[in-house]
Design a protein around this nucleic acid. Structure first.
Lengths: 136, 136
DNA sequence: TCAAATCATAGAGCTAACTCGAAGTCTAGT
DNA sequence: ACTAGACTTCGAGTTAGCTCTATGATTTGA
């Protein structure tokens, strides 16, 4: 079965070898096997697992929370409910983040317009008729 | 003109007084005035500025980047172009974040379904017929 | 055979963004 | 007059997530 070295995996996933070793140290990669002299041999499925780890990370989940999930995976079917609940919670969290980003975007776009107008007028004064500077 | 104490502002914006003092220390609040004995007096417009700061923060902008913007604001019309460019960049960044979140969401939803099915079957084996464990 | 590359571990160092403790000032109420 | 509470500064401490250095083993190509 084909395996990959730590630097190959790092390149594939756009991470550093330091980060991968750090993940391992934190208990995120208990499934990665070693050859007799200790070198890590990443299987295709390990890379898939790392993609899930990256996905969870991108939801803002801390390393410790991801470790809990990895531990549940090792524990087998007894933890299916916990894992389901965890993903449902992630889903709700990401939905909330999307809502937040939309609000942020509305403010940013307003500012883009504000500065476009100011830039065309050559001065911010154009907005200061009855309101205040940075707040528009 | 009505002003607010640091703890009132903290409450209003759901920040701590520590955070507000930290922002000030980092140069994010040069516009906040003081009374003769040194106590900060926040104006309504200062609170609006803080909202913009929070908005920039929620785009993932670091404190130092926000400080640069605040400095530009103090510099006046000469920096309108920079400020416009900065908000356009923030806009592009937030758009990219939204795309990323969508991809993340797709994976998370897939996992929700995966675990829903496994849970109903009472075992993860249901998914292992021709594929591998955590990767589905 | 030897130098370069890649792997390993342990543990130190770094950065961002807070978070807090110490010590002191000021104001308001009893 | 005195205590409580809110304000100040300075600087130390905390946490997360890397990031790197030192040291050593192993492999690989000239």
């Amino acid at each position: 079965m084909k395996t990959y070295s730590i630097s190959e995996v790092a390149k594939k996933l756009n991470l550093t070898v330091y980060t991968l070793r750090y993940y391992d140290k934190e208990g995120l990669l208990p499934f990665v096997e070693r050859n007799p002299n200790g070198t890590r041999l990443f299987k295709e499925s390990d890379i898939d697992a790392l993609k899930i780890i990256e996905c969870l990370k991108s939801t803002g989940m801390p390393i410790k929370g991801i470790k809990t999930f990895i531990d549940w995976c090792s524990d087998g079917d007894d933890t299916l409910q916990q894992r389901y609940d965890m993903f449902m919670e992630r889903k709700a969290d990401v939905e909330a983040q999307m809502e937040e980003l939309k609000k942020t975007m509305a403010v940013i776009e307003h500012k883009c317009l504000y500065y476009k107008t100011a830039l065309e007028a050559g001065t911010e004064e154009i907005h200061k008729s009855n309101k205040i500077s940075m707040t528009q």
